[in-house]
Amino acid sequence: MNTMASISTPAGASSPAFGAHPGYRRMFAPDQLTLGIFLPLRFYQGDMQALAGQADLVADIDRHGFAAVWVRDVPLFDPAFGDAGQVFDAFTYLAFLAARTQRVALATGSAIFSLRHPIDLAKASATIDQLSGGRLVLGVASGDRPAEFPAYGIEHAERGARFAQSVAYFRALLR
């Protein structure tokens, strides 16, 4: 990611800047308790049937006024980590769920910026946000599963610097 080294780190937007964003407004409605769910609802243990019907449940929670559905960006299964995480690709799954819902915010908890290229992150994020009517809420992280980094040819110790560079590049791309 040497091409990102020359991009300065802009300051983040203030909360009023998000006031017009449909997904943000849905999750952080003033003076209201909002509820969301985190997927997967059932842990994958080698049988995809455990995940069957989740999209139908998400469509139901959308109709019942839930604020958000969250998915985790877990690139690789690490049995030593203690959970199955998200089996589906977070962005592909959110796009699928966007097509099945009308109002619920679609949130990542969190996209691993240090393992993904900022161009791909920006395109996937902007696509889902546009196609869903502005319902994407993008949580970001540097990655907490050390086993994933060698698979990408990245040193775990470099994740902080990579994260900062990726966020700056991502912001520049979206401008």
Rank of each mutant, 00 (worst) to 15 (best):
G85C: 10
G133Y: 03
Q49V: 09
F170A: 04
G82P: 05
H21N: 06
V140A: 09
Q32D: 12
A172N: 14
T108C: 04
Q130K: 11
P10C: 15
D73P: 06
L115G: 03
Q165Y: 07
V167P: 06
D129G: 01
G46V: 13
G36D: 05
S125G: 10
M4P: 11
R103S: 13
R63H: 11
R159L: 02
L97V: 01
D78L: 10
A11E: 14
F81R: 04
A52I: 07
Y24I: 01
F28S: 08
G134R: 06
A151E: 12
P40Y: 07
Y24W: 08
A68I: 02
T9S: 15
E158D: 14
H156F: 09
E148I: 08
A99F: 05
A13S: 14
L138H: 00
A68Q: 06
S14P: 12
T34I: 03
D31C: 07
G23S: 04
L138A: 01
Q49N: 10
Y24G: 01
A13L: 09
D129K: 01
T92L: 10
S125K: 06
F18Y: 15
G109L: 13
S15Q: 15
I112K: 07
V87A: 12
L136F: 00
A55L: 10
S114F: 07
A161N: 09
A99S: 08
R135Y: 03
A161L: 15
Y169Q: 15
L41N: 06
A164D: 09
F91C: 02
A29D: 03
L51R: 00
H156A: 08
A20H: 13
G133L: 02
V71P: 02
V69Y: 01
A105T: 03
P75A: 05
V74L: 12
Q165G: 09
V167L: 15
G133A: 04
H117G: 07
A124M: 08
R159G: 03
A90T: 04
F18I: 14
G82D: 05
V74R: 04
A172C: 13
H117L: 10
I154Y: 13
I37P: 09
L173Q: 11
A98G: 03
R63C: 08
A67M: 08
A147G: 14
R159Y: 04
L106S: 02
D89F: 10
L121M: 13
R42C: 10
A90R: 00
M27P: 01
A151W: 10
V87G: 08
P10L: 07
G46C: 13
H21S: 05
Q45M: 12
R159W: 07
E155L: 03
F66M: 05
R145D: 14
E158Y: 11
A52E: 01
Q32E: 13
D78M: 07
D73S: 07
P40E: 07
F113M: 14
A105I: 01
S14V: 15
I128K: 01
G160P: 03
L115R: 10
S142C: 06
F163L: 10
K123Q: 11
L174H: 11
L39P: 03
V58W: 08
I37F: 07
A99P: 03
Y24K: 07
A124H: 13
Q86E: 13
Q102H: 06
D62W: 14
G134P: 07
D129Q: 00
G19D: 13
T127R: 09
A105Q: 05
I112Y: 08
A105R: 02
A95L: 03
A126R: 09
R25H: 00
